[in-house]
Amino acid sequence: MGKMCLDFKKVSKIFAHFQRKKFSVPLIGLAAIVILLYGLEQAGLKIPSLIEMSLLVMTPLGLAAVGESINQKAGLINIGLEGIFLISAVIGVYAAVKIGSGVLGVLIGTLAGAFIGLLFAVICVYGRANQIVAGMGINIIAIGFVPFFMLTVWRSWLLTIPQFQISALFYNPIRLQPVTVLAIIAAILASILLYKTLFGLRIRAAGEKPEAVDVAGVRVDRIRLFTATLGGALCGLGGAFLALGWFGGIVKEISAGRGFIALACVVCAGLRPLRALGFAFMFGFAEALAVTIAILYKDILPENFIYMIPYIVTLVAVIIVGKAMFPRAIGKPYVRE
């Protein structure tokens, strides 16, 4: 066992060397994608379609990941993203149908997400609840609540409402959804917020050294309430987008595990919002490519293995970075002395 540890240290050094060189992960990723795209174009695949689909997949993942990045920076970890996706999607659809407006449906879905985020923060900050357990609780509630709600209200776990679908901004050269633009803006703003503002400094400090923030006269609890609510709202927007932006309708398992891929984006990106969005795009691209390959070039690689890509990439990322990426106080309730 000792020998293996030694070897591992050597490997870590090599990785550290790369990190010092400031190779930016997204930059490498982008370059890789460009090269890949060229190759795929040569192979006869349709690049605009691949990008369109990647953007669609990216949007909910990216929104949730950006929100969760801020949340985790402040010291709260919410693994209930999948549950928030599902609940906000169904609430969004319900609101859209009741009010008769897709846009308002998305808005209310976002508010539903924010509300769950806030509730989560209250439980964790004031109730000092275990965050992992509470997050899991959200997921399990959603597994039951969404079909229960749909069956009770609509007597069906599938609903189509194309009339309330948010329409695309434009169709050429590629189709672009307004919420996709929001996701990109959210990532940029989150990045500015975290790294260029005093408030961002406080958020990060609340995750690293909550005592110090407290001493400086800033309320850690309020920061965490804010970040969790914001995180929930962005995740809720992602969920509502699934039902009202991507589709004009909903099924009971509409997110199909995407909440966990969003979590993977956060971890891979080391809690940096822009990178999280980058990973969301990359995972979206992998998914789009997987489907295309499955149809046009069967038997290259079983689809089941392609679907594993986000999770394997995440494992590789955490193996390289180790535990260093998380703020020190993450997952721990902060109690004022």
Binding site: G127, N130, V133, I138, G144, P147, F148, T152
Partner: peptide, 25 residues
């Protein structure tokens, strides 16, 4: 009553138990 409700009940129990001193509070 649609049977999926029991998952909601479990989820709520889990969250209640995540709070260490809920009874005391």
């Amino acid at each position: 009553v649609y049977s999926e409700l029991v998952y909601v009940i479990l989820g709520i129990i889990i969250i209640s138990l995540a709070i260490p001193d809920l009874l005391a509070i």
